[in-house]
């Protein structure tokens, strides 16, 4: 099989890229693979990590001039570690836990691409620091239910939910004071 890029050499790097079920097969020679950035010289040839950086830039063409808005986005900077969005998009790695908040509004499209449409964690919660998280999540869910109950004019239910929220919030407050 010949290389699909240069059409001269034998294709030795083969891989399939699957994004949300859309599959593209790529067959290139070692040289083109390096030039196109599919592999870096000394690393695993088809790790997804290396294909990632392309996902950040919907229009990677060199001719593409960044708009004012895009320029602004690039300059968003993480207070904690100093990483800018531009740097993050280039290396494809976060600098610290805070980056997840700093770049929050740009992350959903990225996560959807990488994790087949998912953006929210399902699964383990840390045992020790997680207790509050569970309770806060419950408070949030209950507040939504409360709004719904009020909208439905189901005031008895609303009162019950309000009491539940209160008791959970008291718990959370006490816990917070206990730690301090």
């Amino acid at each position: 099989m010949e290389c699909q890029e240069c059409k001269e050499n034998k294709a030795t790097v083969h891989f399939a890229q699957v994004i949300n079920g859309d599959k593209t097969e790529i067959h290139v020679c070692q040289k083109c693979a390096k030039e196109k950035g599919y592999v870096s010289p000394d690393e695993d040839a088809y790790s997804l990590h290396h294909l990632l950086s392309g996902l950040f830039n919907p229009n990677p063409s060199a001719l593409h001039q960044p708009t004012e808005q895009e320029k602004e986005e690039r300059e968003i900077q993480c207070d904690k570690c100093g990483m800018t969005y531009h740097q993050f998009a280039r290396v494809g790695k976060f600098g610290c836990a805070m980056c997840y908040q700093t770049f929050a509004e740009h992350l959903n499209p990225l996560f959807r691409k990488v994790h087949s449409g998912n953006t929210v964690h399902e699964g383990k919660v840390p045992k020790r620091i997680g207790t509050d998280i569970y309770q806060r999540k419950m408070v949030r869910d209950l507040k939504l239910q409360l709004q719904q109950a009020i909208a439905d004019e189901a005031f008895e239910d609303a009162a019950k939910i309000r009491d539940q929220i209160k008791s959970l919030e008291n718990n959370l407050n006490q816990h917070g004071e206990g730690e301090a």
Binding site: K93, F94, A97, Y100, L110, H121, K124, P126, K127
Partner: peptide, 30 residues
């Protein structure tokens, strides 16, 4: 993991899960 967590404060977010350097590991980190 629980045993390690007794001593380590993990980077964890309610919505994103365990926070990792690479976006390909976020969530469960598994």
């Amino acid at each position: 993991d629980d045993w390690l967590e007794e001593k380590i404060d993990y980077a964890f977010d309610e919505n994103r899960g365990y926070l990792t350097s690479c976006p390909t590991n976020v969530g469960t980190g598994l």
